[in-house]
Design a protein around this nucleic acid. Structure first.
Length: 591
RNA sequence: GGUCCGGUAGCUCAGUUGAAUAGAGCAGCUGCCUUCUAAGCAGCAGGUCAUUGGUUUGAAUCCAAUCCGGAUCACCA
């Protein structure tokens, strides 16, 4: 159902027949015609003018003539302006398209049929709750997974939990020192926040001790090293690695508190994983790669026994892959984990949704796997995204300028509730229905806000201004869907074939938009970029709203018009739902 | 310092495989609800696309230099 591709074929064969010129249909440049000109699609002629040795205007006239003559059932008329050939397709063609699309049982595309893709996202630490940056990560990962599924791929969503290390021990030490047996249960605090609070307490106490030591003449570095709380933490990490049972037991308990909290958040925002990897179980992996790399001469050993790879020929640096004492570093684990994932799932592609601060690391990871000639190395794709920043700059947990995930979600729900009550359109809803609606709108606004921006760019969130429900937003699109549903409750679109009609400009605009979906979906999939779908959802809704404002559906001028408009409306609603589901956003029947 | 990313309207963002008069939303200003949901529609106003030079029939888009901002280059994860 790719109209542009279809037209490119027509043009390509016309060029051959009428001009004896062979060119790949792919190479032609066709866009939808700008609204200020007449036409549906536009061929850019400049690049063809040269090889054909014709002035663009002349070429346009002749080519347009040929197209209309050869395909009168598809091409109705044309006009040439400067180097642009504007083509208007016949109403019959558009009618047929609309019928065919509405009869299509599924809106999926076969682009990635038979491919198996892993998407790793979220990947939190277990010492503090999720924040707005995690939400961008989670929504991106979820959305990309949906997009790939809708292109026919089998998708495995996975999460790597960073559940070990010094930062976890900090929360544990602080809990031992200050908690007096407090738990999430007996305080009523959500587990991840509870543990996060002790992480903050640790840092407060550390600062106090450091200040004290500095007052007695130590330098800052000395003080940080010597602070009793820091020493205790380091000892705890050693005890953890030695498998000391009371440390392990506390570690287990506190991590489980955090997992309960995370699960609650994941349920609330609709995130899930088929497979979760825990770093405590994977951090010893990857050492066999070091032996392998040494044998192949890809790695080398320094005097102190540490193992390195030299990537200076690739424009990078030398990179440590194993410490002198034989323990793993971050990259070692990641090598092992990539293998582990491949052993388990034999993926064609493995997508890592990770912030752009790790671009260098991911480049190194892929490069090493390539040098080791791993079959899955080429399938690794780093979906790098920019940080969510405040107007004042980066969020800093130490300065308390982190936007908490649970907080922002509840704020959004409160705003959705307030707006819905102000408008008073769903007074007959039950309490459960209302709650579901508020959540749908709140998450719609939040997800759309985070997904509408190109992932690789950093973005700004201003907590002073709450996220909009008007304009280029999730609720705008959701509203259009609810409005169409309301229309269709009053008058159903039937399956009867449409009768011949002349498309009015607003109707044509809409059907043209409907035809764009497969193109946009494929673009989103190949670029791993949900934002193009957000833009499309908005444009589609906007186009419908203009149409809706201009023409009455139920009181249409004729029975044929009514039938056509009902079908356009039904199809718009269907596509809005499909596009939004790619973004992980549900759409309501009423709002 | 090396590498990478970014700089487009007051603000937040599209547009960057070169193509018609650079587009949206928000904020500001005008209109439009006794007819299908006004979370909407129609309009006004707002731009030296960081700067300079180059390539081209054509540059926000490509090239070079410069300025500004950010990330990264740990025996941290």
């Amino acid at each position: 159902m790719r109209i542009i591709a279809q037209i490119k074929e027509l043009i390509s064969s016309s060029l051959k027949e009428a001009f004896g010129y062979s060119t790949l249909a792919e190479a032609l440049v066709i866009n939808t015609t700008k609204p200020e000109f007449e036409g549906d699609y536009t061929l850019v002629l400049f690049s063809l003018a040269k090889p054909l040795k014709l002035a663009p205007e002349k070429l346009g006239e002749q080519l347009g003539e040929a197209l209309v003559n050869q395909h009168p059932e598809i091409i109705a008329r044309f006009n040439v302006i400067k180097g642009f050939l504007n083509l208007t397709l016949t109403d019959g063609f558009w009618l047929q398209f609309l019928e065919a699309q509405s009869r299509q049982p599924s809106l999926q595309e076969p682009l990635l049929q038979g491919k198996k893709v892993m998407v790793e996202y979220s990947s939190p630490n277990t010492n503090k709750p999720l924040h707005l940056g995690h939400l961008r990560n989670i929504f991106l990962g979820w959305s990309v997974a949906e997009i790939l599924k809708n292109c026919g791929a089998e998708v495995i969503k996975t999460c790597v939990v960073n559940d070990r290390g010094i930062h976890i021990c900090k929360s544990m030490i602080a809990w031992q020192l200050f908690a007096n047996g407090a738990t999430p249960d007996n305080t009523g605090i959500k587990g991840d926040h509870f543990v996060g609070d002790y992480y903050v307490k640790f840092n407060d106490e550390l600062k106090r001790q450091v200040d004290e030591l500095m007052a007695s003449g130590r330098t800052k570095q000395e003080a940080e090293k010597e602070a009793p709380i820091m020493k205790a933490t380091q000892q705890m990490l050693l005890d953890w690695e030695a498998g000391k049972s009371e440390v392990l037991s506390l570690w287990n308990t506190m991590n489980n508190w955090v997992y309960e909290g995370f699960d609650q958040t994941y349920r609330q925002i609709g995130a899930d994983f088929q497979k979760t990897y825990y770093e405590s179980k994977t951090y010893l992996l990857g050492k066999q790669f070091v032996a392998e790399g040494l044998q192949q001469g890809i790695f080398f050993t320094k005097e102190d026994g540490s193992t390195w790879i030299d990537l200076t020929n690739e424009g990078l640096d030398q990179k440590l892959v194993l410490r002198g004492d034989g323990t793993s570093v971050y990259i070692t684990q990641d090598l092992g984990l990539a293998q582990e994932k491949y052993n388990e799932f034999a993926y064609d592609q493995s997508i890592y949704v990770i912030a752009d601060e790790q671009n260098y690391h991911m480049k190194v990871l892929q490069l090493i796997l390539e040098k080791l000639q791993k079959p899955y190395a080429k399938g690794i794709y780093h979906l790098s995204y920019g940080m969510v920043e405040l107007p004042s700059g980066r969020m800093k947990s130490r300065e308390g300028t982190v936007v908490d995930a649970d907080d922002i979600v509840s704020e959004m729900i409160a705003v959705a509730k307030r707006k819905t009550e102000e408008l008073g359109k769903v007074k007959d809803f039950t309490a459960d229905e209302l709650e579901e609606l508020y959540r749908m709108l709140a998450l719609g606004a939040l997800k759309f806000f985070l997904l509408r921006v190109d992932p690789k760019k950093k973005m700004v969130f201003n907590p002073e201004e709450s996220i909009d429900f008007q304009g280029f937003t999730g609720p705008f699109v959701q509203y259009t869907h609810a409005r169409i549903c309301s229309l269709l409750r009053k008058e159903k679109s039937t399956d009867q074939p449409l009768s011949e009609t002349v498309f009015l400009p607003a109707e044509k605009e809409l059907v043209l938009q409907l035809a764009q979906y497969p193109v946009v979906l494929e673009q989103a999939a190949t670029e791993h970029n949900p934002s193009v779908l957000a833009t499309y959802a908005f444009t589609l809704a906007k186009t419908f709203n203009s149409f809706y404002n201009l023409h009455s559906v139920i009181q249409a001028e004729s029975a044929e018009k009514k039938q056509l408009r009902l079908k356009l409306a039904a199809q718009t609603a269907r596509l809005i739902e499909a596009v939004m589901s790619n973004l992980g956003i549900a759409v309501p029947q009423r709002m």
